[in-house]
Design a protein around this nucleic acid. Structure first.
Lengths: 110, 110
DNA sequence: TGTGGTACTGCGCATCGCACACTACTGTGC
DNA sequence: GCACAGTAGTGTGCGATGCGCAGTACCACA
């Protein structure tokens, strides 16, 4: 409610983060969650990632395939398709522009 | 819905942006809106700014005083109080950490 | 009189991250 | 055999927040 909340900062950026960690290697939800947490987004919730993956898939940015595992439940892998790569690129540009604007605002203390 | 939406990126950051533009000079809503748009947040909605000001005030980060204007309606000025300055500082730190994490994620293309 | 710019309020909506509960499979230890 | 932890996914509903839009009000100018 008050105080600085990372949750709100994630809005609109989690999509981008998920696309980013899928750029070089396909991944399944649980693994992507670990990648994001390892990367520094330590407070991310599991439901957020699964939800994001479903949204990105519904939006046509990802393809998916199921792989049975010998050490647990099946894994639903996701992979970037061309539209996803375009989105990642565009999103990155928007992010950089936005971040740059914010940095300027925060640092104009002369 | 699809495409890259600046709206979502603002979530949680608008607070910070408003605190930032109030750091050096008090301001009233309409003026703060102009400052933010000038600074680069061109697509920001007026209701967002007014709402944010009310929230920040309710949270105890701002003081306010009304100044009658000779060329239009009265103006409700807002000013940072000590809690607001603390919040600005902390928020800035959180933002920089978060932005740094995202930049790393987006640029790990070897 | 009416049109446009200034300035603020309130209502309701859409998005999205998240907590929580639930299902389900595997391996380990009692 | 059974409880338990770790892995993996789905579905529901909530809360925070930016935004569109309507409404109010004041001023200047034609």
């Amino acid at each position: 409610m008050l105080s600085v909340d990372t949750t709100q900062l994630l809005k609109g950026v989690l999509d981008l983060a998920v696309l980013a960690v899928l750029r070089d290697d396909d991944g399944y939800g649980y693994d992507i969650l670990r990648r994001l947490r390892t990367a520094g987004l330590t407070e991310i919730g599991d439901a957020s990632v699964y939800g994001t993956l479903r949204r990105l898939f519904a939006a046509g940015y990802l393809t998916t395939y199921v792989v049975p595992s010998e050490e647990g439940p099946h894994r639903k892998y996701y992979a970037l398709n061309p539209a996803g790569r375009t989105q990642l690129k565009q999103g990155g540009d928007v992010w950089r522009g936005f971040a740059s604007t914010m940095n300027t605002l925060l640092r104009e203390s002369a």
